[in-house]
Amino acid sequence: MTRTAQNAQGQSTDILTQLSNLLPTGTFMLSQALATLTTNNGDCGHTDKVVTAVMLVILCAICAFSCFTDSYKAENGVVYYGVVTTTGLWNPYFVGSGLANVSGAFYIGDNAKYNLRVFDFVNAMLSVMAFAALTLLTAPVTTCYYPHIPDSVVKSLPILVGALIAIVTPYAPPARNGFGHAIPESATPTNSSSTTTSLLRNSSTASTI
């Protein structure tokens, strides 16, 4: 394989990774499972509509929040999750950890990679748009809120949203690998004990945050 072909393949892989991190697949599947219950399988009354709306707002917030999280593989092989801030990656387990480039509860290394940036807000907006297009235009949500919506809208709007995301993604910075996102092979701990420690820290951190 030539260098040009390798570069093109690498760029395609990066774009696909960014798309997969933006598209709220897991959150969408969860919304579909919950919506069947909250909408009474599409035959919903006023209370069902309110409960479904609250559920969708919470899931939208989760989609947006995940775009402000990232992961860092420390020199001890442990993968730490945290929230990106203007200072760096925040994780309460950084306090007293003795890790390099850690100041208090913030990891400030890697040339400000974990600093909050404008595109984090853009990615959060795109993620919420994708979730809304997928959720609000599929049953049982459609049959609950607007059963007479034209098929043309149901079919065309998600395509337009997907096209917008596909246009913006190639020009975006590298996708973050935060809560709910896949961790690259290079960020996977090399032994079972490190993996166990990572899982314990990650679960504790998630519950703390």
Rank of each mutant, 00 (worst) to 15 (best):
M1C: 10
T2V: 10
R3A: 14
T4N: 12
G10P: 06
G10V: 06
T13V: 11
T13H: 11
I15M: 10
I15D: 10
S20L: 15
S20E: 15
P24Y: 01
T25Y: 13
T25M: 15
G26C: 00
G26V: 01
G26P: 04
T27R: 07
F28K: 04
L30Q: 10
L30W: 09
L30N: 05
Q32V: 08
A35K: 03
T36W: 14
L37H: 03
L37E: 10
L37S: 11
T38Q: 05
T39E: 02
N40D: 15
N41D: 13
G42A: 07
G42E: 09
D43P: 07
C44F: 12
D48F: 10
V50I: 15
A53H: 03
V54Y: 02
I58Y: 06
L59H: 01
A61T: 11
A61D: 06
A64I: 14
A64M: 11
S66A: 15
F68K: 05
F68W: 03
D70M: 00
D70A: 06
D70Y: 06
S71F: 00
G77E: 07
V78G: 04
V78E: 06
V83K: 02
V84T: 13
T87C: 04
G88W: 02
W90F: 13
N91P: 04
N91S: 02
F94V: 05
F94Y: 01
A105Y: 06
Y107C: 07
K113D: 08
Y114L: 04
L116W: 02
R117M: 12
F119K: 03
F119T: 14
F121N: 07
F121Q: 02
F121R: 00
A124S: 15
A124P: 10
L126M: 13
S127L: 03
V128I: 15
A130F: 02
F131G: 07
A132S: 11
A132K: 04
A132D: 03
A133P: 07
L134I: 08
L134S: 12
L134K: 02
T135R: 00
L136N: 05
P140Q: 01
T143I: 09
Y145N: 09
Y146Q: 13
Y146D: 13
P147Y: 09
H148W: 10
I149D: 09
P150W: 14
P150I: 09
S152V: 14
S152I: 14
V154A: 09
V154R: 13
K155M: 12
K155Q: 13
S156D: 09
S156T: 13
I159R: 15
V161D: 02
L164G: 03
L164D: 08
I165E: 08
I165K: 02
Y171L: 14
Y171T: 07
A172Y: 02
P173D: 10
P174Q: 06
A175K: 02
G178M: 01
A182C: 02
A182Y: 06
A182Q: 11
I183C: 06
I183N: 06
E185T: 01
A187W: 03
T188D: 05
P189G: 05
S193R: 09
S194K: 14
S194F: 11
T195K: 12
T197H: 05
S198F: 03
L199M: 11
L199Q: 04
L200Q: 08
A206V: 04
I209C: 01
